[in-house]
Amino acid sequence: MADRDDRRERDAPVRDQVSGAEHDGIAASGFPILARTDFSEVTFLLEIHHPAMARAARPGQFVIFITHDRGERIPLTLADFDPAKGTVTVVVQAVGKTTRAMQRDCRQGSTIFGMVGPMGVPSRIGEASKVVCVGGGLGVAPIYPQARGFKQAGAYVIGVVGFRSRDLIFWEDKFRAVCDEFVICTDDGSAGIKGRVTDGVEAAIAKHSDIDEVIAIGPPIMMKACAETTRPHGIKTTVSLNPIMVDGTGMCGGCRVRVGGRIRFACVDGPDFDGHEVDFDDLMTRLRRFKQEEQAALERWTESCRRIDLEPAHPGGAGGA
């Protein structure tokens, strides 16, 4: 009897209720990882099952992850979303304690403790008829949905992505499928043109006099360089900012950035802003806010991993003297 089933559900303990797996297609906790691909020693892709988020996500939005009940909340820009498969994709660079732990622990078949999104104002796609989509470092993956979005909206899309060397390149086919022109820049010249993404942007501007917009995602120093490259040409340049966040819902103000002399919250006013207005030096200073603590946490974690590796393996876990 339906009523009786209702009642039994109601008697379940709090935790079960809070983390109840599926309801209206909305998962609340314990999000399964369907696939993982490693692109390099530090870069890996996670494809996570979350049908509601896959439906709601738009280019430019981000998610916040918390990987365990003592974890921190970290924002990651969405690299892809597929409403048909019900999945969202992020590409992670293992640089700090949390992302290194994710690299170790997030496997196909395991779950993410907490994940909320899509967050932030979606990118405006539509008006521009010729755009350059620039991705560098951790920004290569998140520029993909923008390129695809512009392509679907009928724009002429020039993709420019940067890697250190040939063997770190990923998603070339995916980009080529949505870009009318696609330029790879490598630091060592082992693929594409030798140089930085700004060289690719310069080349695109030289070739096309009618570029409406440049969208750049990557490390702050790269976005700053892109904005400076386009500024003399007066080309609208949109950047996606990645400051430190806690809640991601506009509540803590930790992600505040200076744009056009005003304080804006990247989580609810952004993450996209006019690159010519952003105070990148301020952003870079604020990204160093917890440098000491981040360093200490990473060292502590690395040390504990080393100790675990040194310990002789005891089947069944808690062994030892």
Partner: peptide
């Protein structure tokens, strides 16, 4: 029933 990790407005 309480559903955490759900940002209404965006999800």
């Amino acid at each position: 029933e309480i559903k955490c990790n759900t940002l209404v407005g965006r999800l």
